[in-house]
Design a protein around this nucleic acid. Sequence first.
DNA 1: GCAGATTGTTAGCACTGTCTAACTTTATGC
DNA 2: GCATAAAGTTAGACAGTGCTAACAATCTGC
Lengths: 150, 150
Amino acid sequence: MTELDPTARTAPHDGPADPRTEAFQGVREARRNELAEDYVELIAELIHEQGEARPVDIAARLGVKVPTVSKTLDRLARDGLITRAKYRSVFLTDTGRALAKECRRRHEIVLRFLISLGLDPETAERDAEGIEHHVSERTLALFAAFANRS
Amino acid sequence: MTELDPTARTAPHDGPADPRTEAFQGVREARRNELAEDYVELIAELIHEQGEARPVDIAARLGVKVPTVSKTLDRLARDGLITRAKYRSVFLTDTGRALAKECRRRHEIVLRFLISLGLDPETAERDAEGIEHHVSERTLALFAAFANRS
DNA sequence: GCAGATTGTTAGCACTGTCTAACTTTATGC
DNA sequence: GCATAAAGTTAGACAGTGCTAACAATCTGC
């Protein structure tokens, strides 16, 4: 019954064998990172726009309460994406900055793609926010090509 | 500071005023329903393919353990999407069936769209699984039009 | 340079979603 | 029709993500 049982289904791979199962596992994996990605992307943006990223601004942008942000920032710090000192604003580590850049890139491509498809910018922004965490590199390349072509 | 403060930002709406904040809130809302949608869609599929939806099959498809499924099914039952009896397989309520149908529709459109964009079917399946919960009706219409046109 | 406003932290609660371990029920194969 | 295998449930742990309430630190405007 375990997913390592080589007699399961038809294929003798390691792993789930069913591509649908792989898809679900991939999605669950992606979902775990979504929030962290939203945070680092937003932190980079705030630093760029306002010179610093304060919990109160992060909370306002995300639409959550400040204590929620505080707790999440602790986790991001623990995971090496940001550094922070008590009662001070937040900084990205190199890792965090790299992730933010990557997220911004994906976000831009998805957004441009949706707009070039004919979507209004507001809906495009909302959809891009949800979609960007779930597009493979391959899809991203197709999106970018489409947006450039049209 | 609260999101109901009419002096916040520039617009005197109720709600967040910043479209980016709305986007984040919408995404969080969508994320809350994703798992339920995955479940009902899968349950409908299993019933169609095999005549019944058993926890063990749901678990195998999703790539999680049976007790996880059991607990989630309790929640779906509590929320009126399925009915179940102890040690028996699972049935969709009318509400659950409607949701499943809606999910399947979205999934199909996204999948067809990605494939018609030029993506290989396996990647398309994986990406569709992640994307389908985050596309607005408006985007879906554009996807469908594109897939039909090409 | 102090009072009051703003911002940030901590503690504690609730719920989700995952797991393992132990148990019960149902199904299967002689 | 009974023993064993398979499936399902329950209990309990743990991390994540949200909240409120209470407290602490910092900032601001006289």
